[in-house]
Design a protein around this nucleic acid. Structure first.
Lengths: 334, 334
DNA sequence: CTGAAAGCGCTTACAG
DNA sequence: CTGAAAGCGCTTACAG
């Protein structure tokens, strides 16, 4: 065996004095009943001694599968998607799969023409299923935080229920003029927030912003400069809520005295600024989606879970600072 | 060609009426001078029509390389490492490589026994080179934000220079009693901060904390409860700085009036809370490291760049609120 | 209980 | 200018 090239199963076979097929049988764990225990032990020892690792490319070629799953997310820099990754990667690892991330629309600004690596399945979060074109063939797919009517199995949050809780909370504090600081992205998850909110607050006033602190700031400035200034801002995302928070301060408005502010996600930023938010369990989302994909790969029909989203009440909607002009019941336990 | 299996180069060859080798030549772009332009066009059209994509496993096996790089980071949920990934992935894509992330120590709590996928090279950030054991063979490696004396080429930040700027800034505001809120992780990047700080402030008082808001809060409480309370806290990381900020508020101390606070990284949290920090260009770090790895793969010796780290002065050390007891020059332009 | 052989889908000398 | 053939390192029928 040459020293500068990794050992192959052939090398192990030669060193152990057995055939290549025996090595393969033993190391894949399918040997009992077909190879003697003594031979098996000898093979394992030899493999260990030589530092043998099966060549993944050869195995993939032979088996026609890779035990690799691709996770497609709009961006990995957002903590939300990083958590989705963690959840999915954990479940994948528990089942001997590995997970690669593909960010798209990539900050690189390149078209998604399908994975260049060989994958057995795909998870895609918070995007339109139709945008995943260019696959060389249909790949088992689970969509996360996406339109449940898209064809692929989905894992979603109970946005309806969360919006019910959120508006109920604000109503109980006496809020009646509510503004919606909406994400300026045309995907299902945000359409869903808007629909659920408008169903409960028909006269909601809406401003749109790209998901960044500065854009959130400017859109919130517009909302808070209106003659009929909203007393509460429901933001589609914690980042927007931070921008709104800044805007309120810039206008000399007290939070929550003059204006209440809420977000979505519950990223660390919301915790740091004590912003009331709807906690979306991103890690669970990733884990559930991977479980569903494993179902799919095993020929089973995955469930389409809808994960509960918890309202986390913090200082930015503190009951103690509730509007005194409100007519609803005030101070119900959070 | 069966309908439910992806087309192979054999299928393309048959459909185009040429040999498999001609297909390969044409699609790899090595055909000029060896295949007629007309044949080449025919092959390309046929491949397009059939939706042919080369099988990566077969190509990898044949070529013995994968054009895949693995990035090893302690965690992907920290925005810093997400940015490192973005920078490295961009350069990788520009050179036809793909980048897979491996988080380690994984939240999964599993040992790093080398990548299960086949990789051509590795980037590892903010960890000890020695901890990367278990590789089946030496893999081309570039270390990021790590000990430059570890053997592998490195890409680092100018922590020394940053600490010079930072302490200079605090001195100029009149600060003399300085506390160090240090990350409780024994890796080079934090040892480096401590050494650089102690060289400039020999009587610095240090408390350690795990990198989280709550742990930072508690360690800061200890620092700020001392009889000789520091007038400035240098935190190893923005997250710790946020904890320190909370602690100051909890103790009724004004920031920066009673205590100045600084961080490292310049994540969005620092911007939102207006915390003075040392901006570490994470994306550039990732990009430079990937360029170095490409050098390595091409047999060249990569440079070992040291990236400048910029002091970003914000409200948490605002000159206008500088200590009035200070003896140094106050209010130098930021 | 063990081995010889086929074949996964590529790329690249080699032959013509 | 084009094709037939070898071989990358596996796994799995198949034969004994």
């Amino acid at each position: 065996m040459p020293a500068d090239t990794p050992p192959t199963s052939k090398d192990v076979a030669a060193a152990a004095g057995v055939s290549q097929s025996t090595v393969s049988m033993v190391l894949s764990g399918k040997w009992p009943g077909r190879v003697s225990a003594r031979t098996a032990q000898k093979v394992r020892d030899t493999a260990e001694r030589l530092g043998y690792r099966p060549n993944p490319a050869a195995r993939n070629l032979r088996l026609g599968r890779t035990r690799t799953i691709m996770l497609v997310v709009p961006t990995i820099t957002a903590p939300f998607f990083a958590s989705v990754y963690i959840g999915a990667a954990r479940v994948a690892a528990e089942h001997g799969f590995s997970l690669v991330v593909f960010t798209w629309p990539l900050e690189l600004d390149m078209p998604f023409d399908g994975p260049q690596e060989a994958i057995d399945g795909m998870l895609a979060s918070s995007m339109a299923e139709a945008s995943l074109s260019g696959m060389r063939r249909p790949v088992p797919l689970v969509m996360l935080d996406s339109d449940p009517d898209g064809g692929a199995p989905t894992v979603n949050f109970d946005i309806e229920g969360a919006m019910e809780d959120l508006t109920g909370h604000l109503f109980s504090l006496g809020h009646r003029r509510i503004g919606h600081l909406a994400a300026d992205i045309d995907v299902w998850t945000f359409q869903c927030r808007a629909a659920a909110l408008e169903a409960r607050v028909p006269d909601v006033v809406t401003e749109r912003a790209a998901i960044s602190i500065t854009d959130g700031f400017e859109a919130a400035m517009r909302l808070l400069s209106r003659a009929d200034r909203p007393t509460a801002l429901i933001c589609d995302d914690d980042t927007l809520a931070v921008g709104a928070h800044k805007a309120a301060r810039a206008l000399g408005l007290d939070v929550p005295g003059d204006v209440a502010i809420t977000g979505f996600d519950d990223v660390v930023l919301a915790e740091a600024l004590e912003i009331t938010t709807v906690r979306l369990p991103a890690e669970r989302l990733g884990a559930q989606a991977m479980l569903g994909l494993l179902d799919l790969l095993n020929g089973r029909t995955p469930p389409r879970p809808v994960l509960p989203a918890e309202l986390v009440i913090r200082r930015s909607t503190s009951p103690s600072a509730a509007l005194t002009t409100g007519s609803g019941p005030v101070g119900q336990p959070g």
